[in-house]
């Protein structure tokens, strides 16, 4: 299987013009195979992007990209539920632009609606083991994107199971890791506002709002109701190992940086033209955060294991075996 690059949905609240221009450049220049669109974090932001959605889908498909639409992460209110149902409707509702070929489910409700039809399972669905993967495949999943916190051993088992089941397995290899979702808006809260009267303050931070510890150590990133890592997940140096496990799809999560350059760098590694480690070193510092890969190496996600990239914290010693083990 030829390894393929996926561009995940933009998670941040960018002005719609910037959003449209971003995808125009992706269509023209970025060597990615699949582009996933959709406002998956906050229902309140969705109307802005809806106005440009058809044009962006057309532009991307005309450039030969496969376009999928992603469903929201958290569906609680009636209006959110109605929107999710429109997106996942079987009869090609107006909510789904022609040209988009698959829906990627990010909540169990969407998964329920998509049963029996080919669909993708997004990284916000709790997929931790081969039994769950088999169950999902049985209901029509053709591609799954694994949760960011999975360690290498789990990825390997799932990639193998995916090969056996005929389900493509994807892993996020670049961009801040999504860590949590809430009904509460932390962006609004940080501005002393309520979610209902949020004034869309999340729009001030195109890569999210930095959150530091009381000692001033950078730690997390707030994006409205979502919390992301501060560190930028980067598995460029692990790409070869991932491919050897049978992972066939590699996801880049968009940030307000030169994503064409990021895509080109990863493409070069996948094509065997460049060393993963060298690419990691080149991309280090592209966003103002250290590179991290701890989840994959079965340690704290905030850590960086191996290679020449910077560590996140001053405490650089790796976790001892005692620290790592679960308590008994």
């Amino acid at each position: 299987m030829t390894p393929s690059l996926t561009l995940g949905p933009v998670l941040f609240n960018w002005p719609v013009d910037r959003w449209r221009d971003f995808y125009a450049r992706i269509a023209d220049e970025a060597p990615v195979d699949t582009v996933i669109l959709g406002e998956i974090v906050c229902f309140k932001r969705a109307p802005f992007f809806a106005t440009a959605m058809d044009a962006v889908v057309d532009r991307l498909t005309a450039a030969g990209k496969t376009v999928w639409l992603a469903s929201p992460i958290l569906v609680g209110s009636e209006r959110e539920l109605a929107a999710m149902r429109d997106l996942t409707a079987a009869d090609g509702d107006d909510a789904v632009p022609t040209g988009a070929t698959l829906i990627e489910a990010n909540d169990m409700g969407a998964l329920a609606r998509l049963a029996g039809r080919p669909h993708a399972v997004g990284p916000m669905i709790n997929l931790y083991n081969e039994a769950t993967l088999a169950w999902l495949a049985g209901r029509g999943a053709v591609s799954v994107s694994l949760p960011a916190e999975l360690p290498a051993a789990s990825v390997a088992t799932l990639a193998k199971a995916g090969c056996d089941l005929g389900v493509a397995v994807e892993v996020q290899v670049w961009g801040r890791a999504p860590l949590a979702i809430s009904a509460r808006c932390y962006h609004a809260r940080a501005h002393g506002l309520h979610k209902d009267g949020c004034q869309y303050v999340c729009g001030n931070d195109p890569d999210g709002l930095p959150v530091a510890t009381m000692d001033g150590q950078p730690f997390l990133t707030v994006n409205g109701t979502q919390t992301l890592s501060h560190g930028c997940l980067c598995l460029a140096a692990e790409l070869e190992a991932l491919a050897a496990m049978g992972v066939g799809r590699f996801r880049l999560s968009p940030h307000a940086v030169d994503m064409v350059r990021v895509a080109e760098a990863f493409r070069a590694v996948l094509d065997g033209r460049r060393e993963g480690r060298a690419v990691a070193a080149e991309l280090d510092g592209l966003i103002d955060a250290p590179l991290v890969n701890g989840f994959f190496h079965d340690t704290a996600g905030a850590r960086h294991v191996g290679g020449a990239a910077r560590f996140q914290s001053g405490k650089e010693k790796p976790l001892s075996q005692k620290d790592k083990g679960s308590m008994s």
Partner: peptide, 13 residues
């Protein structure tokens, strides 16, 4: 949202 949170994992593994 419970069961959809990797904050602890990010800090401790």
């Amino acid at each position: 949202a419970e069961g959809r949170c990797s904050l602890s994992s990010y800090a401790t593994g």
